[in-house]
Amino acid sequence: MRHVLPTLTSPLRTIGARDFDFSQRVAVMAIVNRTPDSFYDRGRTFALDAAVDAALAAVEAGADMVDIGGVPFAPGEPLSAEEEAERVVPVIEAVRAASDVVVSVDTFHAEVARRSILAGADVINDTTGLSDPDMVPVVAEAGAHLVITHSLAAPRTQYARPSYSDVVREVAGFLHERVAAAVEGGVPEERLIIDPGPDLNKNTLHTLELVRRFDEIAALGLPVLAALSNKDFIGETLDAPKSERLEGSLAAAVTCVLQGARIVRVHEVAPTVAAVRMAEAILGLREPAYLKHNMGDAND
């Protein structure tokens, strides 16, 4: 039986200088953390040159977007908007000068979003579900894209023992409400992307259920970002340290793509691009790069 993907209400997007038809392809978003305490790379790209080099290397490896972050999601000491902007803005400026790649900024501060957009960012990736009431007006005025993510805790605070009666239904309801609020605030649906927030205020069983029923999130009709790369639910499922989670990350990403994910946010770009291109071909969204095997009179 042919696999039917959820229908998108606005699949055609111009994001920055690039055009996307999310009914026909999946975008790969590379993660670049300019933080000394990111959960995965532990400061490897904290230096400005290292962050810029990592972003441009991701573009060379096939990334359609780079997501630049200055503050981890995990609980910890707050960082002022001024300090956060000082981390991300120089990276944005350098990447924008060198490439037309879509630049996303992972921030929950409206002021950081404003400065980032002025520096050349095309997307604001808010992992706190619009915790800053000024975020929507800033994005609306600038004409940028906005990623709305499900999470429940106040930024950088603990959220012990998260509990849901039906995690997928509750996440979908949250996203539906936040999308409505963003539209009412001036950001049209055609500039919105949603993210169910795997592992964000969720345990491993919650995240596995989200991945298992990802099509229910995609059924909301907006492009869905799958941010799964190297997360703890993969480590706990496979008993794997962060350095050994690539295979699990690829399996989770492909599972979500087959159910309607249209952006995957990842650390390892090249293997993810290959996995996503293969999934697109299986779905009938793209042709093989070439055809030779058993296409002629001899069995090649």
Rank of each mutant, 00 (worst) to 15 (best):
L205I: 11
L205W: 14
L205T: 13
T207V: 13
T207Q: 13
T207H: 13
L208D: 12
L208Q: 15
L208E: 13
E209F: 07
E209Y: 06
L210F: 08
V211A: 15
R212C: 05
R213E: 01
R213I: 01
F214W: 01
D215W: 04
D215R: 05
D215V: 07
D215T: 07
D215F: 02
I217P: 08
A219N: 06
A219S: 12
A219W: 05
L220G: 12
L222C: 09
L222A: 10
P223F: 03
P223V: 04
L225G: 14
L225E: 13
L225K: 13
A227M: 11
A227H: 12
S229A: 11
N230E: 15
N230W: 12
I234N: 04
I234K: 02
G235S: 12
G235T: 09
L238M: 14
L238P: 10
L238H: 07
L238K: 04
D239Q: 04
A240W: 00
P241Y: 04
K242T: 15
S243T: 15
L246I: 06
E247Y: 09
G248F: 00
L250Y: 00
L250T: 01
A251D: 06
A251M: 06
A252K: 03
V254R: 01
V254G: 07
T255F: 07
T255L: 12
T255G: 13
C256S: 11
C256Y: 06
C256N: 05
V257W: 02
L258V: 12
L258N: 10
Q259M: 06
Q259S: 07
G260R: 03
G260Q: 05
V264T: 02
V264Y: 02
V266Q: 05
V266A: 03
H267Y: 01
H267S: 05
T272A: 11
V273F: 07
V273H: 05
V273L: 08
A274F: 02
A275K: 03
R277D: 12
M278P: 13
A279K: 05
E280K: 00
A281K: 11
A281V: 15
I282R: 10
L283R: 00
L283D: 04
L283F: 01
L283K: 02
G284E: 04
G284S: 02
L285I: 03
L285A: 03
